[in-house]
Simulated scan of single mutants.
Amino acid sequence: MKEKNKRESADDVVRQRRTGDPLGVNSEVGRKLKQYYDDLVSDEVPDRFAQLLAQLEQAEPSAKKG
């Protein structure tokens, strides 16, 4: 079993050198995660959430004084 894993690892290294992709299979996972993150960041903040944040910001100065 160990010999098979070593051979697969060596094959991965060779494949990475040929393609110039240092992450190999993980590159696709990374691309999908980046795409998901970019989509998430570009979404607008819901109005109700923005209102709650504004209320929290207003409450903080009074909490610090007291």
Rank of each mutant, 00 (worst) to 15 (best):
S9I: 01
G24H: 00
R15W: 13
Q51W: 11
D12G: 10
K4Q: 08
G66K: 08
Y36P: 01
D43Q: 15
K65F: 00
G30L: 03
L56T: 02
G24N: 00
R48I: 04
V29K: 10
K64Q: 08
E60D: 01
P61K: 01
R18Y: 08
L40C: 12
R48W: 08
Q58V: 03
V13C: 02
Q58I: 01
S27V: 02
A10G: 09
L53T: 03
D47L: 14
D43Y: 13
D11L: 15
E8W: 03
E28P: 01
V29A: 12
V45M: 15
S27F: 09
R7T: 12
L53G: 05
V29I: 07
E3W: 06
N5L: 13
E3A: 15
E44S: 15
K34S: 10
D21E: 13
V45C: 13
P61G: 02
S9C: 02
R7G: 02
V29R: 09
A50V: 06
Q35L: 10
G66V: 02
L33G: 00
A10L: 14
K34R: 11
F49H: 07
V29C: 06
L40S: 14
G66E: 04
A10V: 06
G20S: 13
V45T: 10
M1P: 03
D11Q: 14
Q55A: 15
S27G: 15
P22L: 05
L40M: 13
N5E: 08
V25P: 00
L56G: 01
Q58F: 01
D11S: 14
A50W: 10
K2E: 06
E57K: 15
G24E: 00
L23V: 03
L40G: 08
G24A: 00
D12N: 11
D38Q: 12
L23K: 10
R48Q: 11
A10F: 14
V25A: 15
L33T: 01
K64T: 04
L56S: 02
G66F: 04
Y37P: 00
S9D: 05
A50C: 06
D39L: 11
D43F: 05
S27Y: 07
V25Y: 09
R15F: 14
D47Q: 14
R48E: 12
K64G: 04
S42V: 03
V41K: 11
Q58M: 06
L40F: 15
E57S: 12
A54T: 07
Y37N: 08
D38N: 12
L52G: 04
Q16I: 01
P61Y: 01
A50E: 08
L33H: 00
A10C: 07
E57M: 13
G24W: 00
V13E: 09
F49M: 09
K34V: 05
V41H: 07
G66C: 02
A50P: 02
G30V: 01
S62T: 03
G30Y: 00
D43A: 10
R48P: 02
K4M: 09
N5H: 07
T19A: 15
A54G: 11
L53P: 00
Q16T: 02
V25R: 13
V45R: 11
Y37G: 03
V29E: 04
Y37M: 09
E60P: 00
Q51C: 09
R48M: 07
D43L: 15
A59V: 03
E60V: 09
N26S: 10
P22M: 05
V14F: 12
V25C: 04
K34T: 05
K32Q: 12
M1N: 03
Y36W: 06
N5W: 05
L53S: 06
A50K: 15
